[in-house]
Design a protein around this nucleic acid. Structure first.
Lengths: 258, 258
DNA sequence: TTTCATTGCGTCGTTATGACACAATGATAA
DNA sequence: TTATCATTGTGTCATAACGACGCAATGAAA
């Protein structure tokens, strides 16, 4: 969308007419790689700060469509698990002076009444994506786009840390009544890998044997006849999700509850 | 906020400068009375349609503050359980022609570029309130404000039925990991009353005895020495919530999960 | 060939859950 | 005053789920 500085200027000049006013969205994109949960972040130009991939909503565009578009642009992925989880509507989150100063530093002149300086209410989305399918692609306000260890994220832009934390909290709750993994793991995976995914999301260790039993009881896994070899020690079985049962569990929930 | 027609006009004339553009909120206010779950609705002037209590967000007002304000205005209650649950951002939900025609019917002239005809993204909140504490108060676009049986709600304005359904769905999920009842029931209540509350929310019957056991195991109830007399048949015990444990359960969740 | 971390499978005691039985209660009707 | 009866309080029983832990099998590295 924004290829050169000139286009950023255009973006800021014309954006007011293109976008729904005062509304933005931010995406917390989770991926899983090397047995670690990662989040896709953008490095902002001329600063040490990182930001969540975000964007604006076109005047006639559905909210979810806008989020899907942003994700497509940053990852190259089309069909992904995407869910809104919270609206951040604190007026203090938009700091007019700070934004104005930031843009000036970059040599981008902004008029006093520019739409970009107004207060923004942002809708938080979180996405679960398969790491290997992603091609991290920065936008043109960013110097880089890449994965970061979940627990190694500090200097985030504005309230993006708060948004990230909230996404993680939501994800942890979803774990209790929804199957998770299909969107984060490759087609074939081992039980220990699935367990590590759970452990990373929850931030705590789980008992290996009880985890296996529980996952098997969910009835959404299919154990293959292959094993993963070459990683020292006993070769673990490979599993894949039984998509039919996985989808069914997504709709009906996992645990009994009421 | 709006007392007379003249003020509605003023509201529409000046609202564009007062409110955050293209953003509204709608509240699904649940109450419990005569063993039935009810929802507070507004009857719209000059139509047979009912609407969820809603409003706009002042330019420097926090989202939650705006929702609290709307609730205070419609119910008279200050300190209430209030939670956002979803953003409705489909552009089709704002029908420019329909809105324009509706206002003209009421004799309210609206300029073509008026803010009120623009697309609105609305944030859904749901609230749980104690029925007897509420004083239903219409705003001045409404002819009436009152409680409606949950399952007896049909002709709602715009997409408000969808918003209501989604709120109920959220409430049902919350039931699985949060205690519910303190905000909906009077201080003292019987176990059958609490059960009927659950049954109404879930839309299905529960086993009386298993329900008692489960609620008791949660450890958030205190059985009083009184019983409710005068209602024919055996007098059931009265209960009240142990607020300390109730709050603790709210934070930590009820069921084990992970 | 030995070593050893890791994996697969199972046990045991406790607790939660669904289905159901039975006695106690208290207003109503005989 | 007494019998009736819907409703409530408490308990049983079989089954499933869960946390903690034991033990043998595996397969690469020493």
């Amino acid at each position: 969308m924004m290829r050169e500085l000139k286009n950023i200027r255009e973006f800021i000049e014309k954006g007011g007419k293109l976008f729904h006013p005062g509304l933005s969205l931010d995406c917390v994109i989770f991926g899983f790689h090397e047995n670690q949960l990662k989040v896709l972040l953008l490095k902002m130009n001329h600063t040490d700060l990182w930001a969540l991939p975000g964007g604006f909503v076109y005047k006639d565009e559905a909210l979810e469509a806008a989020a899907t578009r942003v994700l497509q642009e940053r990852t190259g992925i089309n069909d992904i698990f995407l869910q809104q989880f919270h609206v951040f509507g604190n007026p203090a989150r938009s700091d007019r002076k700070y934004q104005s100063g930031r843009l000036k530093k970059w040599g981008i002149p902004v008029e006093k009444d520019s739409w970009i300086l107004n207060r923004f209410v942002t809708v938080g989305f979180y996405a679960l994506v398969e790491f290997s399918h992603v091609t991290p692609t920065p936008d043109n306000t960013s110097a880089a786009c890449g994965w970061h260890h979940l627990h190694d994220i500090n200097n985030l832009f504005m309230d993006h840390k708060e948004i990230l934390d909230r996404a993680l909290e939501t994800l942890r709750q979803q774990l209790n009544y929804q199957p998770i993994g299909y969107n984060l793991l490759p087609d074939k995976f081992t039980m220990p890998e699935l367990q590590t995914l759970y452990e990373t999301i929850l931030g705590k260790k789980l008992d290996r044997r009880n985890f296996q039993r529980r996952m098997n009881n969910y009835g959404i896994l299919r154990r293959l006849k292959e094993t993963r070899k070459g990683c020292a020690h006993k070769a673990p079985y490979l599993y894949s999700f039984d998509l039919r049962k996985y989808q069914k569990a997504l709709q009906e929930g996992l645990q009994g509850g009421w």
